[in-house]
């Protein structure tokens, strides 16, 4: 077992997911089988290998510091589940 039930609960909390009892159990099993499979990577010696973050190497992709129009207020808020006077509203934070 690579990943315990507690690990799954910890990860769910990090990811802001609330899992049912059944999901917790299911994910524990499934993540274990996936990670067991992934353990094959350990067979490869990669100590001298440079990691690839981007498939196509580009660098210094920059834009000029020129103002572009923002979107209008209605568009910015159109999809908001809860808004008030141009703000997004959220329930209490702590």
């Amino acid at each position: 077992m690579k990943i315990s039930r507690e690990d799954v609960e910890y990860v769910a909390a990090l990811a802001r997911l609330e899992l049912t009892e059944q999901e917790t159990q299911e994910y524990t099993e499934q993540l274990n089988s996936i990670l067991d499979y992934a353990a094959m990577l350990e067979r490869l010696d990669t100590s001298d290998v440079v990691p690839t973050a981007h498939a196509v190497p580009l660098h210094n992709i920059l834009r000029e510091d020129q103002v572009r129009p923002s979107i209008n207020h209605e568009k910015a808020l159109r999809n908001a589940p809860d808004g008030e006077e141009g703000f997004f509203r959220v329930p209490k934070i702590v």
């Binding site: 834009r63 020129q66 103002v67 572009r68 129009p69 923002s70 979107i71 141009g86 703000f87």
Partner: peptide
């Protein structure tokens, strides 16, 4: 002190009505 935000062309000007200096 740039004119625009770090990753988009929205103005960095202080103030302005809420959620008006925004884009996708």
């Amino acid at each position: 002190q740039t004119k625009t935000k770090i990753f988009c062309g929205c103005t960095t000007e202080f103030g302005g009505d809420q959620n008006t200096h925004v884009c996708p």
